[in-house]
Simulated scan of single mutants.
Amino acid sequence: MLKIGIITGSIRDVRVNDQVAQHFKEVADSKNLENVSFEIVDIKDYQLPIFDDALPPAMANKQYNNPDVQKWSAKIDELDGYIFVTPEYNKTITSALKNNIDHIGPEFAHKSAGIVAYGSTLGIAAVMSLRGILANFRLATVTPHGAFNYFTDFVDMKEFQPSEVHTPTVHAVIDEVVAWGWGMKDVRENHLNK
């Protein structure tokens, strides 16, 4: 079984992030892919304190003092790939998403990730920022990226209604994360630490 987590990137009460994540899950589920499951991982359920641990996560060996961090670690560790859904804030990702990523590290290694962003300029700067962050964890980010505009893909910036032009890209993001997810699972199981 290949398990893909669709990770929300916003914790705001007025967020539209969960709508975008839900859209991707619905499309992914409609594909009826054999031996592949999708679930939404809402960072609002894993709100962590600002990172200030004594040891960098790379040295913690997936053992963290804070039980909330341990819960987040276990969830990310059990997944084989991810689709990150993030708004663009000030030409980067949200501080909430960055903070959750900073608390862990090895859990992401040798897995696949797709990036979906949105904003007034399609969230392109957030995509580029997140790609750099994820590369640090030896996580294979795939293309294409989902890129949505607040003015054309949302009604009054409150209701996600993606333009039809995005349909092939939505499918491609999902398909690439799954394909690379299987490949990276093989790498983890058969080619590392042998």
Rank of each mutant, 00 (worst) to 15 (best):
I4E: 04
E39I: 00
G181Y: 01
D53L: 10
D80C: 00
Q22I: 03
V20R: 01
S112A: 15
P87Y: 05
G114V: 04
N136Y: 12
A21I: 04
P56Q: 10
H171G: 09
K91S: 14
F151C: 02
D102M: 06
A58N: 13
N17R: 05
A74R: 05
G183I: 09
Q70M: 11
K185E: 08
L33I: 06
I174T: 02
V127H: 12
G114F: 01
F84K: 02
E88K: 09
I115A: 07
E39Y: 09
T94E: 00
H145P: 00
F154D: 12
M184W: 04
F151K: 12
A179M: 14
A147H: 08
D175K: 09
Y82N: 01
V142C: 04
A147S: 14
E107L: 05
V142G: 07
G114T: 03
I133N: 01
H191V: 03
Q22D: 15
F84A: 00
D18M: 08
V20S: 05
I115G: 12
A172W: 00
I83Y: 07
Q63G: 05
H145C: 12
K62W: 05
K3F: 04
K25L: 15
V127R: 09
D77M: 08
N66C: 07
Q19D: 11
G81Y: 05
H145S: 14
V116P: 08
T8M: 06
H23G: 00
S120T: 13
S95Y: 08
N99T: 11
R188I: 05
F108W: 15
K31D: 01
K75Q: 09
D45R: 01
I93Y: 02
R188E: 06
R15D: 11
R15A: 11
R188T: 03
L2M: 05
A54Q: 10
K25Q: 15
N90W: 09
L134Y: 03
P168S: 05
M128I: 11
V127C: 13
A140Q: 14
F108H: 02
L33S: 09
Y46I: 12
G123R: 06
K25R: 15
L2K: 07
L134C: 10
K31N: 10
S73H: 00
A125K: 14
N17V: 00
V165G: 08
T167L: 14
I43L: 14
N32L: 13
G5M: 13
E159R: 15
L134N: 03
L48A: 09
S112W: 02
P144S: 01
V20D: 11
P67F: 05
S73I: 06
I6A: 03
T121R: 12
G114Y: 03
L192T: 10
I4C: 02
N17Y: 10
D42F: 04
M157G: 13
S10H: 07
A113Y: 01
Q22H: 11
A125M: 13
N35F: 05
D45S: 11
A140D: 10
V20C: 06
L79T: 02
V116T: 04
G105A: 11
V187C: 07
T143G: 15
V14G: 03
W72A: 08
N66G: 09
V116K: 00
D68Y: 08
A109F: 03
K91V: 08
G132D: 12
L192R: 10
Y46E: 08
Q63N: 13
N136T: 13
P56R: 11
T141E: 07
E34Q: 15
H166D: 00
M184Q: 03
S163Q: 15
R138Y: 14
I93G: 02
V85P: 02
T143Q: 14
